[in-house]
């Protein structure tokens, strides 16, 4: 856990809007090491999604330095360094689940046999064996989101960026997927950046929790989780867990106090 995969140094991003400039990110500095599970939490407008999109080269910072795998984000994107999971599953309705997972593989030019092999593997990884032939609209929301995670895993990038992937799902499904995600992370050892609204989710999943606050979007606290790697769902009732959650909540409140 010592090699730094993502390094942000004094990052700024200002959008020019009709009502003047909006500081989506201001002076954000953060290192993410290999194999870490990092959650970004904060109220809307705090720049957590923007930061993730900067890493993915979907936005371009207006100041500071950002490197991914010791490349610029743009180079990292071109070398297909990460898989990205959006808030909505965003599966193409004209492709089957297997076809959707093949999409990045086709684009990246994997051969046919390899594609089949990988589809089979990732379907197993997200517990969707036997659903490859279904169309997305024939599945539940939770299954669709699992398929979209499988799609992001299929080309085996070292980094997984997830933007509120479970935000639209109900709590029971979300718990289940959180558990599965942890298992998956343990098995694959990927570096994960995870944006969320939910304190319990952030605390349960992460090795590192980044608390952010808005106007301007900045980091107000970084918490290294003291929780063990092995985390059953019941851990959420432990004193340690509650303590971490408390610290996160304090951080959120501090960042929020002056604006309402």
């Amino acid at each position: 856990m010592n090699d730094t995969v993502i390094r942000a140094d004094n990052l700024d991003l200002t959008f020019q809007t009709k009502d003047g400039p909006v500081h989506a990110l201001k002076g954000v500095s953060l290192d993410i090491g290999k194999g870490e599970f990092v959650s970004f939490i904060g109220p809307s407008g705090c720049g957590k999604t923007t930061f993730l999109r900067c890493i993915a080269a979907l936005e371009t910072p207006t100041g500071g330095n950002l490197s991914v795998n010791e490349m610029t984000p743009e180079e990292a994107r071109k070398s297909r360094a990460y898989g990205y999971v959006f808030q909505a599953a965003g599966l193409y309705p004209w492709r089957t689940i297997a076809g959707n997972i093949k999409l990045p593989l086709e684009i990246m030019g994997f051969d046919k046999a390899e594609q089949e092999e990988r589809v089979k593997n990732v379907l197993q990884l997200v517990d969707l064996e036997g659903f490859g032939g279904k169309y997305p609209w024939q599945l539940s929301g939770g299954m669709q989101q699992r398929a979209s995670i499988a799609r992001a895993l299929a080309f085996d990038a070292e980094i997984l960026l997830m933007d509120e992937p479970f935000g639209a799902l109900d709590e029971i499904v979300r718990d289940h997927l959180n558990e599965q995600l942890l298992a998956l992370w343990a098995r694959t050892g990927k570096t994960i950046g995870f944006v969320t609204h939910s304190i319990p989710e952030a605390v349960y999943l992460s090795t590192k929790i980044v608390v952010m606050s808005p106007r301007p979007g900045r980091i107000s606290d970084v918490i290294d989780s003291p929780l063990p790697a092995e985390r059953p769902l019941e851990i959420r009732d432990s004193a340690e867990f509650i303590e971490v959650a408390h610290r996160v909540r304090e951080g959120l409140r501090a960042g929020h106090s002056y604006d309402d």
């Binding site: 080269a57 979907l58 994107r77 990460y82 959006f86 965003g90 004209w94 999409l103 990246m108």
Partner: peptide
């Protein structure tokens, strides 16, 4: 196409024609 679908293709570093054939043409049908 939705912004998200186009972003997805960007994260794959898909070329113009790949995005055209795999995303935009089917969505335009």
């Amino acid at each position: 196409t939705e912004a998200m679908q186009r972003d997805l293709m960007r994260t794959y570093a898909a070329s113009y024609w790949q995005t055209m054939v795999k995303l935009r043409l089917p969505a335009a049908m």
